[in-house]
Nucleic acid binder design. Structure first.
Lengths: 217, 217
DNA sequence: TAGATTGTTAATCGATTAACAATC
DNA sequence: TAGATTGTTAATCGATTAACAATC
């Protein structure tokens, strides 16, 4: 695997490749060219070949790419085969949605435990995931290696919870709180799922379409 | 407001400006320079001035930017003052999380109704949002102008539901299904909240940090 | 071998950063 | 007026696209 700095744009495209390749595998397609894959994704063939070449030579001249093999390469690049352990903090609606409806294992992640403050939830189990008290979290983090913390707590405790986590050695947070958790230059890896940012971008594109008369009324 | 094509990168930064400006307003800060705002966001002052200049002249030489005024300008660009109406389809965990915990009105969006197939849910009301039967959806869309449909149905009905929506004149979808709803060149505006893409990007960054010894073990 | 398609270098395009004149 | 900071043009940097030799 080559090792120059991979651009953020490339990284964000990798999961999209992966999903398409999964679909193609399911559909029984075993071989694809950069041109065909590009048509499916709306990318140019050049871009696809450049993207893959960041990591190695996955294709074969005159043939194209082997779909399952390429899929495994990308899964490996994304770390899906590393068995990362995740814990969830905050078993509200979003937390429950993630536990019950989001298949962590499909993406190579092992959701091993959940934590909440609500005594009605503590001790319960959802989809095989046990809920413990957040009071036990510090001790848990000392004993167990956790690669990713999924943060789904209410807004008003988001920052204090994040600080506590970082103080206890957490270095990667999947953030659903809609709150900025760290300073721009923090070494902690925070992946934000900011619903509001997404909705506002959509609102802009809708406005733009109305204004340019692409949409009526 | 100027009207060349605004780049996607700029649009994605606007909600981040907005959130910071809200924080600054709450903190009673009424004036800020591009340098100071840049430090808060991790952007260069040049980038900030360039971004704003896509839309007009919001600052004042020698002074900087008026925080509340700038905030209103950006809110306007994002369409927050247009009173867009949204309906939600799928009142599962994610749907409930959105209804109960996500404040649509804070972002200028009016969530007027929800739809589901579950007869236990139909007729109920959550946080002031009434749940109707999806069977009534087509009729509803005919009678009422809906700007945005929030799609939070299970994966296996995602595509068929989207097709039905588009057939009934829906032109903007906020997509929580983790499924690709339209072809690359579709005129329908789809804003994806793909949890898996986000998690896989995080997984990559974690892997990269481990490999480059920025994180141990 | 001929055809196809990659891997990779070169060209282009766009986005970010720097610089500075305008001006509050 | 002097100092500060914008708005905007110019320079740089990086990402995308095009081209083509390598090769299966």
């Amino acid at each position: 695997m080559k090792k120059e700095k991979i651009s953020n744009n490339v990284i964000r495209r990798l999961p999209r490749y992966l999903r398409r390749l999964d679909e193609l595998t399911d559909a029984g397609v075993s071989r694809i060219s950069s041109t065909e894959l590009g048509q499916l994704l709306g990318f140019t063939p050049s871009q696809i070949r450049q993207d893959f070449n960041c990591f190695g030579e996955f294709g074969q001249q005159g043939y194209g790419y082997n779909v399952p093999a390429l899929r495994e390469q990308i899964a490996g690049i994304l770390g899906m085969d590393r068995g990362y352990k995740a814990v969830l903090i905050g078993v509200g609606h979003i937390g429950r949605a993630l536990i019950d409806n989001f298949c962590f294992s499909e993406w190579g992640i092992n959701l091993v435990q959940a934590f909440d403050v609500d005594t009605d939830l503590i001790g319960k189990e959802f989809s095989g995931v046990h809920v413990s008290s957040v009071e036990d979290l510090t001790a848990y983090l000392k004993k167990n290696k956790v690669d990713i913390v999924v943060l789904a707590v209410p807004r008003d405790v988001a920052l204090s919870t994040a600080e506590m986590l970082i103080d206890n050695g957490v270095h990667a947070i999947w953030n659903f709180t809609n709150v900025e958790l760290v300073e721009p230059d923090s070494p902690v890896i925070v992946e934000n799922v900011h619903f509001s940012d997404s909705l506002l971008a959509l609102s802009y594109y809708v406005s733009d379409a109305y204004d340019s008369k692409k949409l009526k009324k």
